Computed example of a mutant assay.
Amino acid sequence: MSRFDRRFARMRGQPSAGGKSKRALGVQAGLEWAFRVEKAQLELPPRQDADEESRGFGLEYVLMQRAVLGCQIDGGQHKMGGYVHEDAEVIAATVAGLPDSLGGIRMALRVAELARAGMTPDWMPGVVPRCVPRETRENQHGVRAVTEVIGTERVLSRGKWRCVDVLHCPVIWRPHPEQIASARRGYDDWWAALDWVRDGLVAGGILREVEVTGVMPKVKPWKNK
């Protein structure tokens, strides 16, 4: 067994700081704690060549740095100056390691941004497309749909043949169904990224004072009645 392997094994076997029980958090709550409370920052990797996959630092980078030190950094319950809890840094490093297949750096920034704001992606709950006039005009009689002339017809009115305009009202769907579908694809992509982060943190087993549980945001909440 190499020196790195021995140190890695020791780190995995170390208890939480002070022998305290770990704080159980779902992955979304853990992200919000790391980015919103602890103010963790993403350490993004340098730009890769176009034909290379961007992997970020991830857990491997954090483990290697700790192995070099041969110890873990003591944490504390209260932030002092620019101190960021090491568990929050591990979470941030994991987010930074999102693979390109899940959105890479772009998704990592999105996940961190939402966590800092304490928000879930807007999947447009309760929104139903409505057929509405493409354009309206307001006058003293109220709001009226704008119509267009598409032809003329001869009609018999009061015993006389007259030419009248044939009007139609152009309509659109608002919001467009594709807007709703796009918002919900964005939620699905975010959910998949959180699922990957959760699996990485659980498999890594190096969080000292936080335990990431299996709790996840709802899958496709628009389908849940």
Rank of each mutant, 00 (worst) to 15 (best):
D5L: 10
F8S: 12
F8A: 13
A9G: 12
R10W: 15
R10Q: 15
R12W: 07
G13T: 05
Q14S: 13
Q14F: 03
P15N: 11
S16H: 04
A17W: 15
A17R: 13
K20Q: 06
S21F: 00
K22P: 03
K22Q: 11
R23S: 07
A24G: 03
L25I: 00
L25E: 10
L25K: 07
G26K: 07
G26Q: 02
G26T: 03
A29D: 11
G30K: 01
G30W: 06
L31T: 05
L31V: 09
W33S: 04
W33H: 07
A34I: 04
F35N: 10
F35M: 09
F35K: 09
R36Y: 03
V37L: 11
A40C: 02
L44N: 08
D49R: 15
E53F: 12
G58E: 08
G58Q: 06
L59P: 11
E60Y: 11
V62P: 04
Q65C: 11
G70T: 10
G70K: 09
C71D: 12
C71K: 13
Q72S: 13
Q72M: 13
I73A: 15
Q77I: 05
K79T: 15
M80L: 15
M80S: 14
G81P: 06
G81V: 07
G82M: 14
Y83H: 13
Y83M: 10
E86F: 08
E89P: 01
V90M: 13
I91F: 04
A92I: 05
A93G: 08
A93K: 04
T94G: 08
T94V: 15
V95M: 09
G97S: 14
G104A: 08
I105V: 15
I105L: 11
M107F: 06
M107C: 02
R110E: 14
A112R: 12
A115S: 07
A115D: 03
A117H: 08
P121M: 10
G126L: 09
V127F: 06
V128A: 02
P129L: 01
P129K: 06
R130C: 00
R130G: 00
C131G: 00
V132I: 13
V132Y: 03
V132S: 03
R137N: 06
N139H: 06
V143Y: 03
A145T: 01
V146N: 04
V149D: 07
I150D: 00
I150V: 12
G151R: 02
G151E: 02
T152R: 12
L156K: 05
L156G: 01
S157G: 02
S157P: 01
S157F: 01
S157N: 01
R162I: 09
R162W: 01
C163Y: 00
V166Q: 11
L167W: 01
H168G: 07
C169A: 02
P170K: 00
V171G: 01
I172P: 00
R174C: 09
P175K: 14
P175E: 14
P175F: 14
H176W: 05
A183K: 01
D189V: 06
D189I: 03
W190P: 02
A193T: 08
A193W: 07
L194K: 03
W196S: 04
W196T: 04
G200C: 10
A203P: 03
G204P: 11
G204R: 06
L207Q: 05
R208C: 00
R208V: 01
V210G: 01
V215M: 04
K218L: 14
V219D: 13
K220I: 10
N224S: 13
